[in-house]
Amino acid sequence: MRFMVIIKATEDSEAGVMPSEALLTAMGHYNEELVAAGVMQAGEGLQPSAKGARVRFSGSQRSVTDGPFIETKELIAGFWIFQVASLQECIDWVKRCPNPMPGDSEIEIRQIFEAEDFGSEFTPELREQEERIRAQLDS
């Protein structure tokens, strides 16, 4: 099972406050542990929302809103992709994580859809297309 592990933004991360050397060191050790265990597939920190934008869809119309975005608790400061056997294993790994932000912080865990989750609507043709795209990404 794959999970996206989402590090929620804080006022500090949205203000562009960079992590301390101690936190970067602790996170580096944690990431090494994840990789050594075969759990971590990807992971990145994200710039504050002030450097981003949102695209809103309404039928065929598109509108763009530049950051920053007001509701910090809805924003993402970073993420990992974990490959584990269960939600509980993912939780266990996340509980070992150094606190990603000074003070209070929150990490959300969401399971990633796999091809078999889509049922018969995911036709053999669509599966083949998905496999081609993934092969291109891997090369």
Rank of each mutant, 00 (worst) to 15 (best):
L24G: 07
G28A: 06
Q129T: 14
G38E: 10
F113S: 13
G119W: 09
R132D: 03
E128A: 11
I112W: 10
C90D: 01
P100Y: 02
D104S: 15
F79Y: 01
M27K: 01
F82G: 02
P98N: 11
D138I: 14
G67T: 09
Q41F: 07
D66N: 10
Q111H: 09
D104W: 15
R2E: 13
A77M: 11
I133L: 12
F57L: 10
F69V: 06
D92R: 06
E116T: 04
I133Y: 13
F122N: 08
A115P: 05
A37C: 09
I76C: 01
P48H: 04
F113R: 15
E21D: 12
E114N: 11
E128R: 13
A42H: 12
V35P: 03
E131H: 14
E128W: 12
F57M: 11
E131P: 11
V84R: 10
G43D: 01
Q47T: 09
V35T: 14
M101H: 03
I112F: 11
I70K: 15
S60W: 13
I81N: 04
K51D: 14
T123S: 05
M1K: 11
W93S: 00
L46R: 08
A77T: 00
R2T: 03
G28H: 08
I76T: 00
Q111D: 11
V84I: 01
E125K: 08
E114Y: 08
G52P: 01
D104F: 14
T10I: 06
L137R: 12
F69K: 08
E125A: 06
W80S: 02
M40V: 05
A135Q: 10
G43K: 00
E130I: 15
S60L: 12
G59Q: 06
F69E: 00
E114C: 09
D117K: 07
V84F: 02
K51T: 07
L23H: 10
N31V: 03
I81F: 05
L34M: 07
V94C: 08
S139A: 09
P48D: 08
E125P: 05
R96C: 12
